[in-house]
Amino acid sequence: MTLYRRRRLTNYIILMLSLGATAAGLIVLFLILGALVWNGIPALNGTLFTEMTPPPGSRGGLLNPIFGSIVITAAATVLGTPIGILTGTFLAEFGRGTWVAPAVRFVNDILLSAPSIVIGLFVYEVMVVPMGHFSAWAGVVSLAIIVIPVVVRTTENVLVLVPSALREAAIALGAPRWKVIVMVTYRAAIQGMLTGVMLAVARIAGETAPLLFTALNNQFWSSDMNGPMANLPVVIFQFALSPYADWQVLAWGGAMLITFTILILNILARWIASRGSFQQ
């Protein structure tokens, strides 16, 4: 009887601990979101979206970093997505039986988790040093390098789920292989591929470390991709660590903006994926 009781008690305690662990995770999530809303709301007024980053002590907004972030993120997505999709296509469609595919898969999974600051160093070495100055393009390239592995992974995963019967039917009609892939396989897997791109955008939208040595920052309005460009993450970094109260308020405003954009993208991506034609 005592043994039975002790086992029941152990079981109870362990299950309660696991409940506690989950609760702790969720509580931290809501504490972070709560702090963002609490500190970010004061920054939310008309000037946030209409004025440039101010010098310390005066009012201003985040118009130039918001613009810069959108431009850099969009360009990086446009640059990285096709490369990722083609690589993912190779892994899913052509890679079978070659030595290349397992090697690429392995390296891709490592790039997926590689420290982003090292990517920044790499782009600094190969772009900023030869060009002689920081530039938005260098930022674009470093973010594109982060986009690629995310898109490769999701593309391969969804393409593999497309039933072979679809491909075989198209091939039997006499369609060449590339047409089968582009017009049949891609079309069947489009939701999953879109999910991958959205997750990649969410991943780079808040990425700061690689931009520190590439796009740098710019206190003024700039649409010149060849020079340093303002962007939200680096502005948040700079303003949050500054001693000026109004800069810190702006940093919180930017932080709230970025986080909620990313969370919405994530939830949307999951929602699209759950409506996809082929599920795991």
């Binding site: 931290v28 939208a205 808040g206 993450p233 810190q248 970025i258 990313i262 969370l263």
Partner: peptide
């Protein structure tokens, strides 16, 4: 839903953890 919420912790950018860690 609970799995998604826990995974959302991974979606929050590093810099947000930084600003939260420093001030909160």
């Amino acid at each position: 839903p609970i799995g998604t919420l826990v995974e959302l912790l991974a979606a929050i950018p590093s810099i947000i953890y930084g600003i939260w860690g420093l001030f909160v």
